[in-house]
Computed example of a mutant assay.
Amino acid sequence: MVLKRLMLAAVILFGTAGAPARQSAAPNALGGIERGQWQLRSVDGSLRKLCVANPAMLIQIVHGNAQCEHFVMENTQRSATIRYTCPSHGHGRTTISVDTPRVINLETQGVANGAPFAERFEGRRIGPCS
């Protein structure tokens, strides 16, 4: 009951930016990201490759397929910030900036399975998924 009141107050105070994102409604910036094989280069130079069938998977890259609630905090054509909570797995906040449909910058931080994380990646589409 208290949580519902707090959420309602947040919606009234901050508008829809504080409301939970609907499963079918992705932030605008994600629509500008091409699907396919992506390479993510972290600040320390390590590489991570992944097949991006749905750009929304980039929101909770550390939490993978965990069932999470998303809250869109910023939503423009070129940038999105999403805060999310994954019951029993942790929480995070991710900002995705779209330079081009094939180049993105992704920053994510939070707690996963009791341990803090903070990652920053430059992502580049390198081809179709194999």
Rank of each mutant, 00 (worst) to 15 (best):
P101H: 06
G90C: 13
L106D: 15
P101I: 09
H63Q: 05
L40R: 08
R48G: 01
V2R: 10
R83M: 02
S42W: 05
K49C: 04
G32H: 11
R120W: 05
V52Y: 06
W38M: 13
L3C: 14
T95F: 03
R41E: 14
Y84D: 00
A25I: 00
T81V: 10
S88K: 11
L106M: 15
A19Y: 01
L106E: 10
A118T: 06
P87T: 09
C51I: 03
V72W: 00
R102L: 11
H89N: 11
V111L: 10
S24N: 10
Q23E: 05
N54R: 15
L30K: 00
H63G: 00
A118L: 08
V72A: 02
D99M: 08
G110Q: 09
N113E: 13
I82P: 01
M1T: 13
Q23N: 02
V43P: 01
A115C: 02
C68L: 02
C86V: 07
L13M: 12
Q23K: 03
E119C: 03
A112F: 14
T85L: 10
E74K: 10
V43M: 09
L6H: 06
G110F: 15
M7L: 12
A10E: 09
T16A: 08
E107T: 10
L6S: 14
Y84M: 04
A25N: 01
A17S: 10
T94K: 11
S46A: 12
A112M: 13
V62G: 02
N113L: 14
P55W: 12
G127S: 12
C129Y: 06
A10H: 06
I12K: 15
C51Q: 08
R83W: 01
Q67F: 12
Q23Y: 01
G92T: 09
R93T: 11
R102C: 05
T100A: 10
G15D: 08
Q77A: 15
D44V: 07
G90A: 15
A19I: 01
N105F: 14
R125H: 04
Q23A: 09
A66V: 08
G114T: 15
Y84V: 05
V2M: 09
P87H: 12
G64T: 03
L3D: 14
S97L: 06
G92N: 09
R41W: 03
S88F: 12
D99F: 04
I96K: 03
A53G: 13
V11W: 01
R124M: 13
Q77L: 08
E74I: 07
R83L: 02
T76M: 02
A29C: 08
M7H: 15
P20N: 03
F117M: 03
Q109V: 06
H89E: 13
G32M: 07
G110H: 11
S97W: 01
R35P: 04
M1D: 08
V2I: 15
A115L: 13
A53V: 14
P101W: 06
V52R: 06
A118C: 02
C129V: 04
T108N: 14
V2A: 14
L30W: 00
A21W: 00
T81P: 04
V98F: 04
R124D: 07
P55S: 11
A115P: 03
Q37E: 10
S79G: 02
E107D: 10
R48Y: 11
Q67L: 14
D99S: 10
S24F: 00
P101F: 05
R41C: 09
T16R: 07
V111G: 01
T108P: 10
